[in-house]
Design a protein around this nucleic acid. Structure first.
Lengths: 595, 595
DNA sequence: TTATAATTTAATAGT
DNA sequence: ACTATTAAATTATT
């Protein structure tokens, strides 16, 4: 194959320390395999040394993959005259490519040459691929002396033992954050659990395993035995999520409440399922979180039968509670891998709370949640009843499962994280490209003054409100603006969502969307016999709706002060809400029967 | 335990970059556990940072094990005033020891102090154990100000978030040189080996590890994958020394010839073992090398059956060859850690060579070795037949092993690097304090003129001399001044030298000396049947002794032009030497049998 | 800025 | 699954 080639001469490259003549030669041959050799022809360098080598220490030989970047780096440091040869190309300008690991096997010659021409030469992979037609370059044959000629190792024992190239993938920040969270919840997950995590996080199971391993053992100062740490600080390294919930929840859903998280959410139900979310969109209002902090959370409180969206800014934390039973429609949509959106159509606006962010100190009662006015921008949340929550796919999917299980004894719905849904999806795009992105509640928080912080009063505490000793629901039953039923549940639109993402499971493109409740709202003719055990096993619980006056103080005791049923017999009459309330109990709650 | 202690003040330590006051304090207490804290009291260092940490990043606390070496290294890099405190000793001077992992838990205080006193401080483990009685030191209580006082961490959560300040120590030229060499020999040493290296080079194991790592992987040009380079240029990265010698050599001995080194020594035997030495003493003549260059080397050429001492000065390189078989006695003696002396008693003077130092250019034949007159001062080497070579302990010890293996099928002798033999040793002191230290051959190099550089003539080349196709030895057999045999081998004086140094093995103090050959020279009644395989496996090779005229040109072809046996039939009669020659062949070479 | 020391983190191997 | 180690990538320091 003393084939012709293509050449380009670069007079001056910007290699530091001296002007260096760079010469790039591309020769096309017959072989399909490409050979790349870069050679520094400096007299101070011995011929053998000057052959550029693969970073993985393999000699460059036909068919070999070459990390051009490393090679270039080498050359630039060599300050040597350089000859690059690409031989046995299928055809100039077309056949080389850089794979996703930045490794070159078949590099677009043009980019190579262009790189050389511009003298950039430092990084290679993302070179402009501008198709420069081969004619632009001269056919060329390296004019080096025979002995300096690269003896094209006859392909033969080219790296007889191809050292199983260690491809080092790096976890993204998000993935790491997720893993950290999950680790905190359970530092030694089972195989099955790992598989779930793998799906959720979006990387191979093996990688998850390795991560947990390394996290547990690494002598790193940070990790400093994440697991060991957990073992010491926390209890005995929660090998299982420790929530003794009677429900057989899907994994991530029943994530344990970390201590700090518990402090954060200050929910008195130890079985709340917190979901760290990335976006919350209500109409034009949009709150994003970059997952480095627990700044945007969602959880479901079974006891109170509500969703909560939690938002934290510098000085204050905010939350809004959406009654489970005000849910008209619930739609799940996959987004990028591991991510999804959950769209909720509710029939009544949420209730709003805020709480001062204070470091807890001994002797000082921690700030507690206070009811407040809608803190979203322009109080949009009071008008727009469509919430779009973006976050980790699996937990969000599990929310669907969970909600579904509240209505019917359905089999758990599995999640399918499809290939990136083209961003053409209206839901997503409308969501993503939505108006302003406010990283904090934009509405001036109402009622924030020092008087606002009343000492927690048992009598006013939500927790101490009677719950189930009276089966009378505590909600305001008047003025349901709409009625609905769940016959409207559009099963034809409720696709099974394959579990996992495309890396580890079957891919059923197109099944990335699911809706739980029909769009239409029918009359309340519930089918109590189809209620899930979830609702029957624990004593019927009640949702405390928007009954309190706007400035009512809600106090939740810490989780570990949880007061089981039956609570105090003392009960408080709900106030009337300024918002219309749905007759959600007529729909789902077996409580109805006991009325 | 505000116990009394023992103190020693060292006014000036030789930490590079500045004079540093070093203070060592030893306090004895009641606890059996020892606490060691080393603290740099530099205002530029925060208190927490200045607490020396275990290499594994653990804070030093009572009972903790501390890698003193690392600590010392750290301190020396800090260039800070240093307070060492050893508290809760069982008793001063007795209770600390370094375990086999080089970790200190109970260090012999005396050595610590002595080290401090002498300011050596670089290496710790093998410090002289000379029992210095505690009274020699004053009772002492650190007089530092309260706040700088080491708050003996109430074990508590001392630095909750001590930013693990990264202290960047830099390797000295010498260390780097050593490492480079060692790397060339073995680019991925085992842990044990690394520990040795660490000891030898004099910096913490961790640093060694890091260096190797960076050398192997870094895209640096020097490193530029030093390991990669090694892998490619050499065979497949000698994870083991690559010499296919039948002997099971200990590492450092079978160091590969680096390219430049090969050029330097211009030996045609690819299996020579070069040993970078620090001193060569022959009588009153003394040549030292500071190890930053390959200016003083020793090697053994199995093929020629000779030792060679190589000395390089600015314009010329010199060497002398000592016939292996003229060896009367060989003594090994440990010196400072990692260093040793080898004393050779030979029965006949070496032969001398010189070569001009020229950069090689293409087309120009490289300068070659030329026989010449004794170039030592006053030609002392021709009269004094006792050579003392100082250098790295292990290789030198291995020389002994090697030589031993030439004479008997003995198990390899391992080396013991004892605690510093007290510098009272006559051999060392006489050597170290010997007359003039000349950094270059002081004798005016003879025959240096332009005529001296004859073009290499095949017929005159030493390499092309017939070797084995005629089994007739080429040496001058006349006038052996002495006869000898190796029955004289004094086994009672041949101690087994434990391999490794005291850090990693049993310590048998006192076994730091060994002699191989008896001091007496007996008649030549060789026992050919006891010859080692080394001498039998490769075709019998011959030593080219001092046969040529003094101005004979010896030309060694480059290694890669190596001409295997049988060489050209053309043979050249040796000239008669001006020196008496031993009948070495009668002793060892099986060639004798074929006479 | 470069060179190189040191750390962090992913991955492998041995057990 | 745990341990130790390697290797890649990154950070930091001079």
């Amino acid at each position: 194959m003393e084939a012709e080639g293509v050449t380009l001469e670069v007079e001056e490259a910007d290699f530091e320390g001296g002007t260096t003549s760079v010469e790039a030669a591309v020769a096309s041959g017959v072989d399909a395999a490409a050979e790349l050799a870069i050679r520094a022809e400096d007299s101070t360098i011995t011929p053998t040394d000057s052959v550029v080598r693969h970073p993985a220490d393999q000699e460059v030989c036909p068919g070999a993959e070459v990390d051009l970047e490393a090679a270039i780096a080498l050359i630039s440091r060599e300050k040597a005259q350089v000859v690059m040869m690409i031989e046995n190309l299928n055809g100039p300008g077309t056949s080389l490519q850089i794979d996703d690991r930045g490794i070159l096997s078949f590099l677009p010659v043009t980019s190579l040459l262009q790189g050389a021409r511009t003298g950039v030469f430092k990084r290679f992979s993302p070179f402009p691929m501008a198709p420069i037609s081969p004619p632009e370059y001269q056919l060329y044959r390296t004019s080096s002396s025979p002995d300096t000629q690269l003896e094209k190792s006859p392909i033969s024992p080219s790296a007889p033992e191809a050292p199983p190239k260690r491809k080092r993938g790096r976890l993204t920040k998000e993935q790491l954050a997720q893993l950290e969270r999950l680790f905190a919840a359970d530092c030694s997950p089972t195989v099955a659990r790992r598989r779930e995590i793998s799906a959720q996080v979006g990387c191979p199971e093996r990688q998850i395993q390795v991560w947990y391993q390394n996290s547990a053992n690494s002598p790193s100062i940070f990790a400093c035995s994440r697991r060991a740490k957990a073992k010491n600080t926390g209890e005995k390294c929660k090998t299982r999520p420790r929530v003794p919930s009677p429900v057989k929840e899907p994994p991530e859903l029943c994530q344990a409440i970390q201590t700090d998280l518990a402090m954060l959410i200050q929910e008195d139900d130890s079985s709340v399922f917190t979901i760290p979310c990335t976006t919350l969109t209500i109409g034009g209002w949009n709150r994003v979180n970059f997952e480095d902090e627990n700044d945007l959370l969602a959880w479901i409180c079974e006891k109170k039968r509500c969703f909560t969206w939690f938002v934290r800014s510098d000085d204050y934390s905010f939350k809004m509670q959406v009654a489970l039973d005000s849910l008209k429609e619930l739609a799940f949509k996959n987004a990028e891998p591991g991510k999804a959106f959950l769209t909720l159509e509710i029939s009544s606006p949420p209730s709003f709370f805020l709480r001062r962010n204070l470091k807890r100190e001994f002797g000082v009662p921690p700030p507690c949640w206070r009811r407040c006015e809608d803190w979203t921008e322009n109080k949009v949340a009071s008008r727009n009843l469509r919430h779009v929550l973006g976050g980790p796919a699996l937990p969000l999917a599990n929310v669907v499962t969970y909600i579904k299980s509240l209505m019917e004894d359905a089999k758990p719905v599995s999640l399918h994280s499809v290939d990136y849904p083209a961003p053409t999806d209206t839901q997503i795009s409308s969501h993503q490209s939505s108006t302003s992105i406010s990283t904090t509640p934009t509405y001036p928080s109402p009622f924030i003054d020092d008087n606002f912080y009343l000492p927690p009063q048992e009598s006013r505490s939500w927790d101490s409100l009677p719950c189930s000793n009276s089966r009378t629901p505590m909600y305001d039953t008047k003025s349901p603006p709409q009625s609905y039923d769940h016959h409207g549940l559009n099963h034809s639109r409720t696709h099974a969502l394959p579990y996992g993402n495309r890396q580890y499971g079957d891919i059923h493109a197109g099944h990335d969307e699911m809706r739980l409740l029909g769009t239409d709202v029918g009359p309340v003719s519930a089918q109590p016999e189809r209620l899930s055990p979830l609702l029957q096993a624990p004593q019927p619980r009640q949702f405390y709706p928007e009954t309190a006056e706007v400035d009512t103080v809600a106090h939740f005791q810490p989780a570990n002060y949880y007061q089981p049923y039956p609570p105090t017999g003392h009960q408080q009459q709900p106030h009337s809400s300024s918002h219309p309330l749905p007759h959600f109990s007529e729909l789902f709650s077996p409580v109805r029967d006991s009325f």
